[in-house]
Structures are given as C-alpha cells and as structure tokens.
Design a protein around this nucleic acid. Structure first.
Length: 471
DNA sequence: ATGTCC
C-alpha cells in the first residue's frame, strides 16, 4: 500500500516481473478485486520493455490477457505492442454532446427515446441504413471523424473536441483483411450491443464551476452520451492480428506467462502492421460515433426548436487504444507506446492535444455510468501524467459475469424499477437489460471517487440519466 | 466487445 488509494504489487508476485505493478483502489472496492485480474496485472509486468509500472485503474477486472482497466507503456526500441493490451473493441469510447435545452424543456422522454431507438441502429449484427462503399470505407479508416464531417455529418468544431481530432494519422489499410472490411462496411453508424448505449442525461451537480464553464456545461443542461466502438471491424482486426502477433511472439522468442499476452516488438513488421490496422479501426470508431451524433442532431432539430449547430460536442474519448505518445520518463521526454485497455486518456493542463480554449483546464474526461447510474465529467491532471502516462479509469467495471446476470436477474423488472425512477429504457431484448443491470457493475461514483482522491483526474460534473437506448 | 462457434 502506497497510500489509501494506491497499491503496489512487488516484483516476484509472479516470476520474471521486470517492474512492479501499481493499482488504484479504495478499501471499499477491495472486495471487488479479482485474483485473476491481479495476476494479469503482474503478468503484464513481465513483458519486454515495459516502462515504470504495469498499471490498473479502480475499475480493474479480468480481461483477455491484460486486465480491463489496465495501462502499460513500452519502450519504442526494447518494448512490445500487444492486441490483448487494447482489446477486441478497438477505440470503444464515449462522447458527450450538450444540447441547448434545459431539463424542464425535454417533454416526454418516452417519445424522444422511442424516436432515437428507431433511428439509431442498435443490437448485435445490425446494419446501417447507409452502406458505405469499399472506397468510402478506406476514407473512413484513414480519415476518421474528419472524413464523415467532410461528407456533411457534423461540424468542424466537433473535430477539435475529439481526442486526436478523431483521427490517428498512422492508420493504414494494407493489413485490414477482406473479412474485416466486409464486416465493417455495413456497420458504420450503428450502436452495437452489450454495454454500448445512447443516453439522454441531465447535469445534476457541478463540482468544479470554472472547469464546467470552460467545457460549456451548466446545471440542468440536457446532454447526450454515446458509448460505442468499432463494431465487427475492430473485432475482426483484433482476431486477425492476434494470429500474426502470436506467430511473431515465437519468431522473436519473446517469453510470455500467458498465451493471451501475445506481442511483437513495437517496430517489427508485425507490430507496425497491427498498429496501422488498429489505428484504422480507431478511426472507424470515431466516424461511427460521429455518424450517430448526426442522427441525434437530426432528431433534436425535428422534435425541438433547436438548430443542428446548437448541439455541441463537449468531448470524445477513447477507452481501448494503443498510441505512440511523448511522456517524461526519469526526467527525460521520450516517445513510448501506451496501451490503454478500459482506461481513458486524462492529459493535464497545457499538455499536447487539448483544445486551445480549454488547454489551461486540462483534457475533458468522460466516465459513463452503468445503466441507470451517474456518469461523470472530469478533467485530466499532471498527477496522471506523472503516475499513469496520463490515464484514468473508464467506467464502472463489471463484477457479475454476463451469464450470472442473465441467470439471476430479470430484465423486465429492472426496466420497470428504472421507469419508476423516471428513467426510460428501450433495448433490443430484456436479456441485454439483465446483463447490463446496475448491480452487475461496481458503483461508478465509487470508481470516480478513487481516481479523484488519487488525483488521476478531478471531478467537474455529475450527470444523471433520463432515458437510454441499448443494443 | 463480437455475424456471442468457421
């Protein structure tokens, strides 16, 4: 234990650890800590070229190879890149849009949610109304949110409010399989399933007036939160590249304690191929969230007397991505390969890639709640830059398996209970509602409380749901 | 997360 919210796993917890592990957790959340996830955190510390610490946020839970809620940075020359350190849903992320409406002006939430549910394609395997051609898919994978904005699905201001301006320049389409393309083509502009959602929220509480005002949100504002990723495309890219990276692990004689930690040297052909394809998938996810934003704006202009441009993007963050970033390591600035898997970038004031008008505040950080619970807007800090390569938590963190939730809980009852609280839920099935029940997750407020106390990001505002659509 | 098994 380093302090009341920061813990260390010493070298030797598992054999061959190169650095100690560090994780952030309150005593209250300790009972949610899975032994398997802790072992995964320690396993990551055995990988070549890992810098400083293998890290985990308070929403840590067991994942594929790397724990979800994990952060790991690797040396560009000695280090590795691993698909397991990013996850299957490449650039799964969240954006928050502020409407000009006050909560008192929203009217019948059921009508709004029903309209959104019928417009935004939702659920496993769903297709978008507009199918992009193969050439357009290339533009999406190379241009991200910027390309779809150029096609009329948004405003230039939207791009400034996206992490990396909604496009990783390193993207390449050379190592995207035909299968990945086929899965991706009909799905850009769809929400997906599982924990992905579109939620109408209201700003319930402001904790930091200065930052909230700079980010453009005030109490009682109606906002929209969109949580989705790269759909079948990212999934297929991860699957494809796991195969080539597994072969590379053997080829470069990298010793790993778990097959799911397959990795390749950052600058190896296999490592670069994965990075380019992952970046292309990340761009697809930004385009996806941008297209859904467009649909939401059209509905709001239709139902309420508001202009398209009056719906402002507050910010868009990625939860699952690997990036080459500059960080200060042992007092020296250097480029490292940061993996965030179920973790959010949380750059501090005046760091790289923060919109200039809010640079002095720090990067906006968005933490979605689980269905029916609060979501949070925070700001990044220099503490995060020093301790976690500018990273914080990404959400609440699952504590019930999907199967256990489905077995033990009734989706219908949860829906009814939420409705009694004035939260209208519309989903493709009651099973999805059971899987995503609030009790299946750690409390988002407790998770956010830990990162706030640890100083990894600071609370700016709390939002509560009014209605939600789910896959 | 995911055409929840090519």
């Amino acid at each position: 234990m380093i302090n009341e919210v920061e813990w260390e796993i010493k070298k030797g917890f598992v054999p061959d650890m190169r650095v100690p592990g560090r994780f952030f957790l309150s005593e209250k959340l300790c009972e949610t800590l899975e032994e398997g996830a802790l072992n995964q955190l320690a396993n990551v510390a055995t990988l070549p070229g890992i810098i400083k610490n293998s890290l985990a946020m308070p929403d840590i839970h067991w994942g594929y190879g790397f724990p979800i809620g994990g952060v790991a940075a690797f040396d560009m020359d000695e280090g590795v890149i691993s698909p397991g350190g990013v996850g299957f849903d490449i650039n799964c992320g969240v954006r928050l849009i502020k409407t000009p409406l006050d909560v008192s002006e929203i009217g019948k939430i059921k009508r709004l949610i029903t309209e959104l549910f019928h417009t935004v394609p939702t659920g496993v395997g769903t297709k978008a109304e507009k199918k992009f051609s193969s050439g357009e898919l290339d533009e999406i994978m190379l241009g991200g949110a910027g390309w779809v904005v150029g096609e009329g699905y948004g405003t230039k201001e939207d791009l400034i409010r996206c992490e990396s301006n909604g496009c990783m320049k390193e993207a390449g389409t050379e190592h995207i399989s035909t299968k990945a393309r086929q899965r991706g083509m009909p799905q850009c502009g769809t929400l997906g399933s599982g924990n992905h959602f579109l939620e109408i929220q209201t700003v319930k509480e402001i904790m930091d007036e200065e930052a909230a005002s700079a980010f453009g949100v005030s109490k009682d504002d109606v906002c929209i939160m969109i949580h989705c990723g790269s759909r079948g495309l990212g999934h297929q890219v991860c699957t494809d590249h796991l195969k080539s990276i597994e072969a590379a692990t053997k080829k470069y004689k990298i010793k790993i304690p778990d097959g799911q930690l397959a990795c390749a040297p950052v600058k190896s052909p296999e490592g670069r191929a994965y990075y380019e394809a992952m970046a292309a998938s990340a761009n697809y996810a930004w385009a996806n969230r941008q297209l859904i934003t467009h649909m939401v704006r059209e509905i709001f202009t239709k139902i309420y007397k508001v202009e398209y441009e009056e719906l402002k993007l507050v910010y868009d963050v990625s939860h699952n991505v690997a990036k080459y970033e500059e960080h200060v390591v042992d007092g020296i600035k250097k480029t490292v390969c940061v993996h965030r898997k179920g973790a959010t970038r949380a750059f501090g004031p005046n760091c790289h890639d923060i919109p200039s008008d809010i640079a002095n505040i720090g990067q906006p950080v968005l933490i979605p709640g689980s269905m029916g619970t609060s979501s949070y807007l925070l700001k990044g800090t220099m503490t995060a830059m020093e301790k976690t390569f500018g990273s914080t938590c990404h959400g609440s963190g699952r504590i019930y398996s999907r199967s256990k939730a489905k077995k033990d809980l009734s989706g219908l009852k949860i829906k009814e209970d939420l409705e009694k609280r004035g939260i209208y839920v519309k989903a493709t099935s009651n099973n999805v509602i059971a899987e995503e029940a609030p009790v299946a997750y750690k409390s988002s407020s407790e998770v956010v409380n830990v990162v706030h106390r640890a100083g990894l990001s600071l609370e700016v505002a709390r939002l509560e749901p009014l209605g939600v659509i789910k896959g």
